[in-house]
Design a protein around this nucleic acid. Structure first.
Lengths: 175, 175
DNA sequence: TTCGTTAGTTCTAAATTGGAACTAACTATA
DNA sequence: TATAGTTAGTTCCAATTTAGAACTAACGAA
C-alpha cells in the first residue's frame, strides 16, 4: 500500500496520519504553535529544504489545517496560521513534546517549559476523560466498534481487505 | 538537514519525532495499543511491506519503545509489546484518533469508540493540566526557556545554528 | 514427503528527498 | 538610476527510500 492510499483505511489514526503523518509536518505545526508563521522563518528553524516546506505548506492549506493569510500588500506576502482544525492538534504536539522531555532527555532537562497561565505552574499535560475528568490510562479504556464501521458494514461497503484490517477486539459479523 | 540528524535539534518534539515520526511508525504503535503484537498480523492490518515493517520494528526495539519477547520456543517466535516508554505514547495516539474522528469523519461517525471503564461513558480525550486539572488550551499556556536550553547555553554548547532555530519567544542572551 | 505457519530477507523499479542554485516581485539605500 | 536586500517560492539532479513481489529458513502437522 502506498502512503497516499493510507486514508482509505477505516481508522481515524490512519486518516489523521494521512494529513499530519509526514516526517516534517508535525514539526511545521510545532513552529506554528510557537508563533513561527512565515516561510523563511520556518525554513531556518526547521532545517527543511525550501522545496519540501513549500510542498508541505500547500498540503496543509489544502487539507484545512493551516490558513494562508496576507499580512501585507505590495509586495503581497502571506503567513500561515493554524485554523481551528489545526489548533486542535495541540494535544498531539504537546503530548509529543512531553514524551520527548521525559524519555529523550539528554540529561539537561526540558529545552522548553510550559507554564499554565490559569494556575501559574510549570505543567506536564495529562490525558483526561471528557466525561469524568479522571486521567485516561490505556488499561482503563475499552475500544469497541463504533458507528463508522457499523454503517459501512450495513451498507455492504466493508471490503474483504477492510475486514482483515480490523483490530482483534472486533468480533462477530463485522469482522 | 537529513531526517536522521533531526534529533540533534534542541527540541523535544523533534527528538520525539526522530523516534516515532516516521510515516508508518505511529500506525504500528496503534496496532500495539489494540493488541496486535505479531509480525504477520501487523503486516496484514497495516498494509505495510514486510521489509518496511521489519525495519521499523528493529528501530522501535532499539529505541526502547517496543520489547521483543518470545511467546514460544521451537520454533522460536517473538511478539512485540509496548514498553513503559511505548505505553506513554498513548496520549499521542489517542489524540490523533480523536482528531481524526472529529475532522476527517466521512459522515459515518467514529470507526472505533473508546469506553472509559471507570465511568462507563464513550469518551473523547481532553488535555488537562497536571497541576490544576483544568483543560489545557493553547492560549492559556506560555512556553518559556527551560533548563535544557539554559544549561547548554551556559556551557557554551549552543551553536549558531541552534540559536537560530529557537522559537521567537526566546529572548535575551540565549537567542 | 509435502504442506502450512511465522518471521523474516533479497531484489528491482519507482517515488521521494536533499542540496544548491535560480526566479520573481517588490523595497530601501547610495 | 544602479545596487543590494527581503520574502517566497521554483527548478534541477543526484542520492536515498519505498513498494511490490518473490524467496529463505526453521520448524510442526497430516
Amino acid at each position: 500500500m502506498r502512503w497516499n492510499e493510507i486514508d482509505t483505511q477505516v481508522c481515524s489514526v490512519a486518516r489523521a496520519l494521512s494529513v499530519v503523518g509526514d516526517r516534517w509536518t508535525l514539526l511545521i505545526l510545532r513552529d506554528c504553535f510557537t508563533g513561527v508563521r512565515r516561510f523563511d522563518a520556518m525554513q531556518k528553524s526547521l532545517g527543511i529544504t525550501r522545496h519540501r516546506l513549500s510542498d508541505r505548506l500547500v498540503r496543509l492549506v489544502d487539507s484545512g489545517v493551516l490558513n494562508k493569510v496576507p499580512y501585507q500588500e505590495r509586495p503581497l506576502r502571506h503567513e500561515y496560521r493554524l485554523s481551528e482544525m489545526g489548533k486542535e492538534l495541540y494535544p498531539v504536539v504537546l503530548s509529543l513534546a512531553h514524551w520527548g522531555d521525559k524519555w529523550l532527555d539528554d540529561g539537561d532537562g526540558a529545552p522548553i517549559q510550559h507554564v499554565h497561565n490559569n494556575c501559574g505552574h510549570v505543567v506536564r499535560s495529562v490525558l483526561a476523560c471528557s466525561e469524568c475528568g479522571e486521567a485516561l490510562e490505556p488499561r482503563a479504556v475499552t475500544p469497541q466498534v463504533g458507528p463508522g464501521i457499523m454503517r459501512k458494514h450495513e451498507r455492504g461497503e466493508m471490503g474483504e481487505q477492510d475486514a482483515e484490517r480490523l483490530p482483534p477486539f472486533v468480533k462477530g459479523p463485522v469482522a
